[in-house]
Amino acid sequence: SRWTEEEMETAKKGLLEHGRNWSAIARMVGSKTVSQCKNFYFNYKKRQNLDEILQQHK
């Protein structure tokens, strides 16, 4: 299923807060499964600069 802007923003916040904790990110997004969140990261990594966001994760 397609990702809305809102879901993407929430997933990015999740990456920032939780790093690669996909289940925590899935809980934040609410409408996507753990594997969908993981796939989002790998599919949108380049397009959305997700690696940069991940590097900011403490």
Rank of each mutant, 00 (worst) to 15 (best):
S1P: 05
R2V: 09
R2D: 09
R2F: 12
R2S: 11
R2C: 06
W3Y: 10
W3I: 09
W3G: 09
W3A: 04
W3E: 09
T4V: 02
T4I: 05
T4L: 00
T4M: 04
T4R: 03
E5K: 12
E5C: 06
E5R: 07
E5W: 06
E5M: 07
E5T: 11
E5H: 09
E5I: 09
E6W: 00
E6I: 05
E6P: 09
E6R: 11
E6N: 07
E6T: 10
E6H: 10
E7D: 09
E7C: 05
E7V: 10
M8I: 12
M8K: 10
E9M: 04
E9K: 15
E9A: 15
E9Q: 10
E9H: 07
E9N: 10
T10S: 12
T10I: 14
T10W: 07
T10R: 14
A11V: 13
A11N: 02
A11G: 08
A11H: 12
A11W: 11
K12R: 15
K13W: 06
K13G: 05
K13T: 04
K13C: 03
K13E: 04
K13P: 02
K13L: 03
K13S: 06
G14N: 03
G14H: 03
G14Y: 06
G14M: 03
G14K: 07
L15W: 03
L15G: 00
L15E: 01
L15S: 09
L15F: 01
L15N: 06
L15H: 03
L15Q: 00
L15K: 14
L16T: 05
L16W: 11
L16P: 02
L16F: 07
E17Y: 10
E17D: 09
H18D: 01
H18E: 03
H18K: 13
H18S: 04
H18Y: 03
H18L: 08
H18G: 03
G19F: 15
G19M: 15
G19V: 15
G19W: 10
G19A: 15
R20A: 10
R20F: 08
R20S: 12
R20Q: 11
N21R: 02
N21Y: 14
N21K: 04
W22S: 01
W22Q: 00
W22A: 01
W22K: 01
W22H: 01
S23G: 12
S23Y: 13
S23P: 13
S23W: 15
A24N: 08
A24C: 05
A24D: 08
A24S: 10
I25P: 01
I25N: 02
I25S: 04
I25Q: 02
I25Y: 05
I25H: 04
A26K: 02
A26P: 01
A26C: 04
R27N: 11
R27H: 05
R27E: 05
R27A: 13
M28R: 13
M28I: 05
M28D: 04
V29A: 02
G30Y: 14
G30F: 13
S31T: 06
S31M: 06
S31K: 10
S31P: 00
S31N: 10
S31G: 05
K32Y: 05
K32G: 00
K32N: 00
K32M: 00
K32R: 04
K32L: 01
T33Y: 04
T33A: 09
T33V: 15
T33I: 15
T33L: 14
V34T: 12
V34G: 04
V34H: 10
V34P: 12
S35Y: 06
S35E: 14
S35W: 06
S35N: 13
S35V: 06
S35F: 03
S35P: 03
Q36P: 02
Q36T: 11
Q36W: 13
Q36S: 09
Q36I: 14
Q36V: 15
C37R: 00
C37Y: 00
K38Y: 04
K38H: 03
K38T: 02
K38M: 05
N39Q: 13
N39E: 15
N39G: 07
N39C: 04
N39L: 07
F40V: 02
F40E: 01
F40I: 05
F40M: 05
Y41P: 02
Y41K: 02
F42L: 11
F42P: 01
F42C: 08
N43W: 02
N43R: 12
N43I: 09
N43T: 15
N43Y: 06
N43G: 08
Y44I: 11
Y44P: 05
Y44V: 10
Y44K: 02
Y44W: 12
K45P: 06
K45N: 02
K45L: 11
K45I: 14
K46Y: 04
K46M: 03
K46L: 04
K46D: 13
R47D: 09
R47W: 15
R47C: 08
R47I: 12
R47F: 12
R47M: 05
R47V: 15
Q48D: 09
Q48N: 14
Q48L: 15
Q48W: 13
Q48G: 12
N49G: 15
N49K: 12
N49E: 15
N49S: 10
N49V: 10
N49Q: 03
L50Q: 01
L50W: 14
L50N: 08
L50I: 05
E52D: 05
E52W: 06
E52Q: 12
E52G: 05
E52T: 11
E52I: 06
I53D: 09
I53Q: 11
I53V: 14
I53S: 10
I53E: 09
I53P: 11
I53W: 07
I53T: 05
I53K: 10
L54I: 12
L54H: 05
L54V: 13
L54G: 11
L54W: 04
L54P: 08
Q55N: 10
Q55P: 07
Q55M: 04
Q55H: 14
Q55W: 05
H57L: 12
H57A: 11
H57W: 10
